[in-house]
C-alpha cells in the first residue's frame, strides 16, 4: 500500500488532477480497471495451478487408486510420502535427473555462449549462421527423438553413427539399449543440446549487442589486451544478468525432461527421469493418484529448494547486480 499510493498520485497528476489523494470513485475505477485486465488471467491461474496443487496435496494423503474423490476410510496420512521416499525406483529417477543436469546445464551454457561469441565476431553471414543454429528450436523433442533413435543412433548397422564407426572397422554399438557402458547419455544429451543451444544463443547475442562500445574503447586506452582480457573484464561481467537468467532457464527445462527419455528409451529403470516415473505411476495402468501426487509434491519442493539456493548463490533478484 505504502508503495502504490504515491504511484497513484503521480498518475493523477499526469491527468491534471492535482488532489493529493484520489477520489473514492477514482480509486474504484482504478480497481475495476485492474481487475478487468488481471482478473481473467488470475482466475485461470487459480483454477488450473493453485487449486490442483491443493487438491493434489489432499489426494496425497489417501490411498487414491483410480479415483479423484477418495473415501474417508482410505486415509493413509503420510504413508504415500514415506512410500515414495523409500521407493528405490523414485530415488533412481532423482539420480538419473542429477546426472542429466550435471551434463546438460554446463554444456548448453558453454555451447550457446560460445556460439554467440563466435557469431558476434563475424563480419558477414551472421544472419545465415544464426538461422542455422536457431532452426532446431522449431523441432519437437518427439521428432528429434525419432531421428536420433531411428537414424543417427540406430543400433543396427545402417544407422549414421554405426556407418561411420564401420569406416574405422569398429563394431556396431547398441546406443540406447546398453546400460553398460552408458552410451545412451550421449544420445540424450546431444539431442537436447541440438534443440536448445540456438535459443539461448539468441539471448546471448541480444545481450552482447547491448554492451556499450565505450567500455571496449576505455579498455584499449588503458592498455588492456584484446581477446582474453577484455572478455574476462568487460564482456563476461556485462553478460551477468543474462547468464544467470539463462542458467535458470536451462535448469528449469532440465527438470521437465520427459519427452526425449520416453520416446528414446521408454519405461526403462536405468534412464527414467522423475516426471516419467510419475507419469507411469499416476497415469499408467494402476492410476495410483495418491502416490503420484505425493511424488509430484516432493519433486516440487525439491525444485523450489534448489531454485532458492541457486538464486541465493548467484544473487538472482539482487537489484544492484542486474
Amino acid at each position: 500500500m505504502a508503495v502504490s499510493a504515491p504511484a497513484a498520485d503521480t498518475e493523477r497528476a499526469g491527468t491534471g488532477d492535482q488532489r493529493p489523494r484520489p477520489r473514492r470513485s477514482g480509486r474504484l475505477r482504478t480497481s475495476l480497471a485492474f481487475w478487468a485486465f488481471v482478473g481473467p488471467f488470475l482466475a485461470g491461474l487459480m483454477v488450473f495451478t493453485l487449486v490442483p496443487v491443493v487438491w493434489s496435496a489432499y489426494l496425497s494423503l489417501f490411498d487414491a487408486t483410480n479415483t479423484v474423490t477418495p473415501l474417508p476410510e482410505d486415509f493413509v496420512g503420510f504413508g504415500n510420502y514415506a512410500d515414495m521416499l523409500t521407493d528405490r525406483a523414485f530415488q533412481d529417477s532423482l539420480i538419473t535427473f542429477s546426472v542429466f543436469a550435471a551434463f546438460i546445464v554446463p554444456l548448453t551454457f558453454a555451447c550457446s555462449l560460445g556460439l554467440a561469441l563466435m557469431l558476434n565476431q563475424l563480419r558477414f553471414m551472421r544472419a545465415f549462421f544464426r538461422s542455422v543454429f536457431f532452426l532446431p528450436f522449431a523441432c519437437s523433442y518427439v521428432v528429434a527423438s525419432l531421428v536420433w533413435k531411428m537414424s543417427i543412433f540406430s543400433g543396427v548397422r545402417y544407422g549414421l553413427m554405426n556407418s561411420i564407426l564401420d569406416l574405422f572397422g569398429i563394431e556396431d554399438v547398441a546406443w540406447l539399449f546398453s546400460p553398460d557402458p552408458p552410451w545412451y547419455w550421449l544420445v540424450i544429451v546431444s539431442l537436447r543440446l541440438w534443440i536448445q543451444c540456438g535459443f539461448y544463443m539468441i539471448l546471448f547475442i541480444a545481450a552482447l549487442q547491448q554492451i556499450p562500445q565505450h567500455l571496449y574503447e576505455a579498455a584499449y586506452v588503458d592498455g588492456a589486451k584484446p581477446g582474453r582480457q577484455t572478455f574476462w573484464h568487460i564482456t563476461l561481467p556485462q553478460l551477468r544478468a543474462t547468464a544467470v537468467a539463462v542458467l535458470m532457464l536451462i535448469l528449469i527445462a532440465a527438470y521437465q525432461a520427459f519427452d526425449e527419455f520416453v520416446n528414446l528409451i521408454g519405461n526403462q529403470a536405468y534412464a527414467r527421469p522423475p516426471l516419467a516415473y510419475l507419469y507411469y505411476t499416476a497415469l499408467g495402468t494402476q492410476q495410483d493418484l495418491g502416490r503420484g501426487s505425493a511424488g509430484a509434491l516432493i519433486l516440487a519442493l525439491l525444485i523450489a529448494i534448489v531454485t532458492l539456493l541457486q538464486g541465493r548463490f548467484l544473487g538472482f533478484g539482487n537489484k544492484e547486480g542486474r
Partner: peptide, 14 residues
C-alpha cells in the same frame, strides 16, 4: 516456482 510439468498430475485430476 512450480514448474508446469510437475503440476501435470494435479492438473490431470482437475
Amino acid at each position: 516456482m512450480i514448474p508446469g510439468a510437475v503440476t501435470f498430475v494435479p492438473s490431470f485430476v482437475m
